[in-house]
């Protein structure tokens, strides 16, 4: 029971991170109908930038944790967004309406490029971050000595995700940018005819996705204390799985998928085998795509004839 509860907490934390990244996948898919392979690497870049910011703040002597964290998040979001924007501008925008496989291959190329770019500039070794926030609550203590804890970091991640999700949903539903995004999702040509700047809206989508990925990268760094250039690949695929599981194109779906995937992975590693946890994630991706390609909350697609 205690063990179960602990895995539940761990799973929710991990799932929140997946969910934040999954939103980037799902939004881009919704608006231009392509899988942004490089999104996982944007997450990784976000993690690196957060790490740099932490170290610089440490040198600058800003050590009050809430302030430092806030500054790091802002820096990571701003600079990672620029990466997101550039990726779209360079690798995807020229390919609108091109040969079907072209954007996918371009995205794959971008992903490979970003990984190696970071590896060459920052080295292949994984970069550790000393624990920034320590401590937590002990929720339960069993007679056998097993304690269930929820750390401050975990609380922060979950709270942060909830806040961001709420803010984000409002953004999409209430603001004119959100309206423009939804319009582009439905019909780009029509949207441009009624005066929506399609290019700018798509750019904004990438910027928002990258900003969320930066938050996820920061959280991941704080929680697991380490990042390397290859991290984005696996985490990215899992986040994509989460997006598909929840129903690609659906924002609540992405979050739900993220949480589910986090839980599945936590329980799988907790009860079965840590070695095969990636297999579990991929297996779920395959099963969902085969049996319910529209995901849990997505709309079924009809083949257009």
């Amino acid at each position: 029971m205690e063990y179960f509860l602990q895995q539940l907490i761990n799973g929710l934390t991990l799932g929140s991170i997946f969910g934040l990244i999954a939103i980037g996948y799902t939004m881009v898919y919704g608006i231009i109908g392509m899988i942004n392979f490089a999104h996982g690497d944007i997450f990784m870049v976000g993690g690196f930038i957060a790490l740099m910011s932490f170290l610089i703040l440490g040198i600058a002597g800003i050590t009050w944790v809430p302030l430092a964290l806030a500054i790091v998040l802002v820096i990571a979001m701003v600079f990672t967004s620029i990466y997101g924007w550039t990726v779209e501008r360079v690798a995807y925008r020229p390919l609108r309406g091109s040969f079907r496989l072209a954007p996918l291959i371009s995205a794959l190329g971008m992903s490979i490029f970003l990984q190696n770019y970071v590896q060459l500039l920052q080295g292949a070794r994984s970069k550790p971050l000393p624990p920034v926030i320590q401590g937590g609550f002990v929720l339960m203590e069993s007679p056998t000595g097993f304690t269930v804890t929820i750390s401050y970091v975990q609380i922060m991640i979950i709270v942060m995700t909830v806040v961001l999700m709420a803010a984000f949903t409002t953004l999409i539903q209430k603001t004119s940018l959100g309206r423009q995004q939804r319009a582009c999702e439905q019909d780009k040509v029509m949207a441009s005819l009624v005066g929506v700047n399609v290019d700018r809206t798509i750019s904004a989508t990438f910027v928002m996705g990258a900003a969320l990925a930066a938050v996820a990268g920061t959280m991941y760094l704080v929680r697991y204390g380490v990042i390397d250039f290859f991290e984005g690949f696996v985490v990215g695929i899992k986040a994509f799985t989460a997006a598909v599981l929840g129903g690609i194109g659906s924002l609540p779906g992405a979050m739900l998928g993220g949480l589910l995937l986090g839980l599945i992975e936590a329980f799988w590693s907790g009860y079965f085998s840590v070695e095969y946890k990636d297999v579990a994630a991929f297996g779920i991706l395959v099963l969902v795509l085969i049996f319910r390609p529209s995901g849990l909350l997505g709309k079924p697609e009809i083949e257009k004839v």
Binding site: V90, A91, I105, S106, L108, G109, M110, S111, I112, F113, L114, Q115, N116, Y117, L120
Partner: peptide
């Protein structure tokens, strides 16, 4: 690095 860039 070149592979990735060339693909794009």
């Amino acid at each position: 690095l070149a592979f990735g860039a060339l693909m794009v």
